[in-house]
Amino acid sequence: MSTATGTRTPQGGSPSPEPTAAPLRGIVAAELLKLLRRPATWVLLGLWPALQLVFSTLVPYISYKRGASYEGSPPEALLASTLPDRLVENSLSGLPLFGGALLLTLGALLAGSEYTWGTLTTLLGQGPRRLTLLAGQLLALVVVLAATVLVSFLLTALAARAIAGGASAAVDWPGPAQLVRALGGGLLIATTWGALGMLLGTALRSTALPIALGLVWVLAVENLIVNVAAPLLGVFDAAQAVLPGVNAGSLVAALAGEGAALRTPGVAAIVDGGQAAWVLAAFLAVSTALTGLLLTRRDIA
């Protein structure tokens, strides 16, 4: 500690200017730096498009090449399901289930580790508004999720183009309007999962428990409600229409359009697309509001 501190010398007695909190764009940049330098981000956000590509495109294509059939469909149907016109469902079909689990984990890590590392105290010690901190974290998350959704589309498109070229099949891309809707819908689903993860991480001020609870919910509880409880009891049949996973699956089904082969678990048109989008938006808004409430109302100890 040898050089000058470089601190400002306040003028004694004179009022200092009204302090201003750090601007949001600076905080978004800081959060992007944190996200991009964090190995967990790359693992979780890399896994989703990779798994997506494997299960929606590569596995059906390899099955086709081997002449296998799927649930009575001929191999040609398998090939057709990997071609460019099926880009939307092949890029998004993992989001309701395993993609959701991964993104919820990312959200829980993002918020929960601020508590486990004690960094929330350090961040707030620099004087930002608490809601600006939350907005910065959420916006940075949206940026990386948007990039990941794009990557999923690009990877799937490249694979579909290569398959179509190899099989001399028609290269029939979805229209621009459908693509834009699909990108927006994919981002809505991804952000909703991330925000739910942030709410869990903030509420429980840790990482392990919110991740465990989130995974059990996405991978087990919703499945049990949809496949076991709903057919047996009317109350669960009605309740499933407001589950985040069910609505994510319904939105993907709607975005895929008519004639899509919906064989990925979790993707099913249980509610219509418009309703699904509104329910997901409500989940996003409510979970963000609750996170903001917890962040502003609670002591940071």
């Binding site: 905080i27 800081a30 944190k34 350090t122 010690g125």
Partner: peptide, 28 residues
């Protein structure tokens, strides 16, 4: 106001400089 409260919390995967870069953004 600048503060060091108890054992300071930092991001373990970031360098010391990057930790301060993040905080400088938060401090404006």
């Amino acid at each position: 106001v600048g503060a060091l409260i108890e054992n300071p919390g930092f991001y373990p995967y970031l360098s010391g400089r990057d930790n301060l870069r993040v905080l400088a953004r938060y401090a404006g």
